[in-house]
Amino acid sequence: MTATDVVATPATGAPLLQLKNVEVAFNGVIQVLHSVNMEVPRGKIVVFLGGNGAGKTTTLKAISSLLAIDDGAVTGGGILFDGQEIANRDPAQTVRAGIVQVLEGRKVFGHLTVEQNLRLGLHLCSDRAIAERERERCLELFPALRGLLERQAGYLSGGEMQMLLVSRALLLQPRLLLLDEPSMGLAPLLVRQIFGALARINRERGLAMLLVEQNARAALEIADHAYIIENGRIVMHGAAADMRNNEDIREFYLGLSVGREKKSFRDVKHYKRRKRWLG
């Protein structure tokens, strides 16, 4: 991309993140994403639904440049963040640009204390006053962490870990937060708490989020837009409110049957075939 391209893209009108026909392959041969198009508008929450192995995590890692460690790469299309091409960069650069991903599986630094985990979140921040302020903001958001600062992070409960992870990511001062299944393995009450916090962060800071979730119901409640991916292709997208009322989504992602009986497997297959067409 040339400098003129950058200037030509208006910094405000365009969506914060834009995926244009993104293709991802591992080891140069195994193609996982096929022409994925997606947008995250400024200040909005976008939820990304799909089954196991559909390509959700791969899409997130394509955005945050974390594919290389698994021998993957964006092989086609482009990823624009604020109008700048960011595909296949050094992940450290991507973080500095303002994209922070919370990986799935609650990856706290388990042998360090909560405090040390938080300080790692501040590792790019050189101003002490700002660092202290941001840390205080996070502890205010998740007061439960305050009493755990000296605790070894590996021994926190699942919910506490997730709070720590979100805090640690926020301390990196992102402009776009990527979250990979934050509710995985959490009790319903905790899921509500985490999603409540995410909604609050979005409201108060105007922080844009791209949220990968299996818990479609909770996610659709706080999201503005939703995308559905299957077999590496986007098969459906639209406003979250519409998605909540969409019959197919209710059936297959929310577990709410339209009729009295569950749909049969044949219907499922039919549904999948039909959705291809939508994509």
Binding site: S64, L66, I69, P91, A92, T94, V95, R96, V100, Q101, V102, L103, K107, F109, G110, H111, L112, Q116, R119, L120, G121, H123, L124, R168, A169, L172
Partner: peptide, 21 residues
Amino acid sequence: KAGLRLSAVAEDHMTALSMGI
């Protein structure tokens, strides 16, 4: 800070990378 970064890398490369380390 530098030492904590090293500790982070010791724990998990992918997580460290995801934080810009």
